[in-house]
Write a protein that binds this DNA or RNA. Structure first.
Lengths: 340, 340
DNA sequence: TTGTACGCGTTATCAT
DNA sequence: ATGATAACGCGTACAA
């Protein structure tokens, strides 16, 4: 691999002069500058970022950790982060924890080992607290995305989960539903908790009883075990006429389970969920959803992160951006007769 | 940041001894080993990968470059690559070129600058040839994924695009269609070329004329310009009864365009495309597709790459894995009366 | 079993 | 305008 010394030798200058050309620092005559540049081209020179990072004691490298690369919410978020990073001259690497605390820990090693400048962190859950404390100990700036973690103070971009859940439930209620179940992510995830709270609040606000058995904490990730959902569904008495799913993955799973049980959506059971299904939901706009501004999560989060990195003030107050939600009614919710 | 020297001092040994503990090399008494490990824990020590890479002159870092992070084909592929890399003890970073040759070039700088061990490369198109030649010049091993590039010899994992296209067209024909249009990616992308060829071959095999105007090269990426598709559609005479789309993104776009024109799918125009819509296509299985084994692209490609990295034999013959396709008939293709 | 000297590729500092 | 030197954190080769 060609080094700065190869360039220096071939251009009859010292390595230092080459370095100055690379970084546009100091002053060099236009003539030698041009000569050095030519040699660099010739030798296909690319500065070694490892050596650079070593001596500079800093990198312009950001890391984005998401929990599910198959979820359009996170891929769209990633695009936002990518764009913001690029605008500010930072590089972005991605990692995918798969909602799994151990995988998250592995990425933590990468993050720490490579001395990245900052992390966009969507935690797998409350257990991520130790990982985040580790980041704090190492003074690695981070921004929490989509989920918060008790005990951790930080910059964050968070959606209005509680409000979104309320909207879904009230949408059901407006359509005549009284028996509304909730299949949700793990209670160890802040957004799942808030969605559960919103679900309960909407019931209370509308003088509807909350039935404990109507709530299933299933997990946000893709799972193949439909039978768990079906067992739950069949155990419910009376059978709910509507189900709210804590996210898009669950929305799809629950629809599959309903259909596998020989029932129809929405004729027998209505369904609505959090987060849209991505660019492809348009072709058969079926599932009623609460959408979030996924791109903004990434874009704004990256801006917060970079600002914190650049004014390295330990006491800079944490900032929190709240992003609104929007209900998109489609076809998976049926209107029940007022006689019900 | 704590270094190996901090550990050494606190444990009353030399830095070298610490290094040996970290890498499990040489021999050290169990006592000092335990002591050193304890100190490392205490100080939250994480080895600096930059320093390590510098002296070792190698990293166990792989890079996956995909062309569209919003496309489920590539996210599924990514999961495969991730799993394979992990099994072999490599780390994987991702980059997203967005079908854009310039963004691809930016990631090339990252790849080169960070001296990654190898690259899983899904090229934006034939123009990527210069980027691949650069990798070759720098002796960075790579595996081509999904697309090949004229003039580049390398390991590769490629799908049977030609066969897939044939299947789609024949599926149309079996359903009574005679006027079949093709909206495709850029002809500068190998898979698009092959799909076009398959489209033509299927016509010839079935004694159907190929009408030049029925072919639109639109681009694989997400574009918002539906009007181009609509203009094209309206210009066709006779109006095709079926349209094959070169990938899933185009499949969705063309359906939107058809509907925006006031026509219905499949009653007025049938549609089928390459690549499935991801985990969510199940809830309303509408679009007829040819699916590919996306996960295997990533998984097998990573295996090829790691094998090449590990037996660093310049003359190792290139290997090419061909992955089959499968037609999944759904509801977006109508059966035409035999009277037609 | 443990430690010393050196080099990996780069840049900051200071001198020329 | 240009260059010599040291330092970043770590591992190899060799010596003790």
């Amino acid at each position: 691999m060609t080094t700065i010394y190869d360039i220096a030798k071939k251009a009859n200058v010292s390595a230092m002069t080459v370095s100055k050309v690379i970084n546009n620092t100091g002053s060099i005559s236009l003539k030698t500058k041009a000569r050095i540049k030519r040699v660099m081209e010739e030798l296909n020179y690319v500065p070694n970022q490892m050596a650079r990072g070593l001596v500079l004691q800093q990198t312009r490298q950001l890391f984005l950790l998401i929990t599910d690369i198959n979820n359009p919410f996170y891929t769209t978020l990633s695009r936002g982060a990518e764009d913001a990073a690029k605008e500010k001259g930072y590089r972005l690497s991605f990692g995918n924890s798969d909602e799994n605390i151990e995988k998250e820990g592995e990425y933590l090693e990468i993050i720490l080992g490579n001395r990245v400048a900052g992390v966009l962190f969507s935690p797998a859950g409350d257990q991520s607290v130790s990982h985040l404390e580790t980041l704090q100990r190492h003074k690695v700036p981070f921004v929490l995305l989509d989920r918060e973690v008790p005990g951790i103070e930080s910059d964050a971009v968070i959606g209005d989960s509680r409000e979104g859940a309320r909207r879904i439930v009230e949408h059901f209620i407006e359509n005549g539903h009284r028996h509304i179940a909730l299949i949700n992510g793990s209670p160890g995830i802040s957004s799942a908790r808030l969605r559960h709270q919103g679900y309960i609040e909407a019931h209370k606000l509308n003088d509807l009883p909350v039935q404990e058995s109507y709530h299933l904490a299933f997990g946000y990730g893709s799972q193949t075990d439909l039978s768990g959902i079906m067992t739950w569904l069949n155990s419910l008495n009376p059978r709910p006429t509507a189900i709210m799913a804590g996210n898009n993955v669950l929305g799809v799973e629950v629809i599959r389970a309903i259909r596998d049980s020989g029932l129809r959506v929405p004729e027998d059971i209505s369904v609505a969920c959090f987060d849209d299904l991505g660019p492809f939901s348009q072709i058969s706009p079926f599932l009623t959803v609460v959408t979030q501004q996924a791109y903004e999560f990434g874009y704004l989060g990256t801006q917060l992160l970079i600002e914190r990195i650049e004014k390295k003030d330990e006491n800079r107050p944490f900032r929190r951006i709240n992003l609104p939600v929007e209900l998109v009614p489609r076809k998976s919710v049926a209107r029940l007769g007022t006689s019900t």
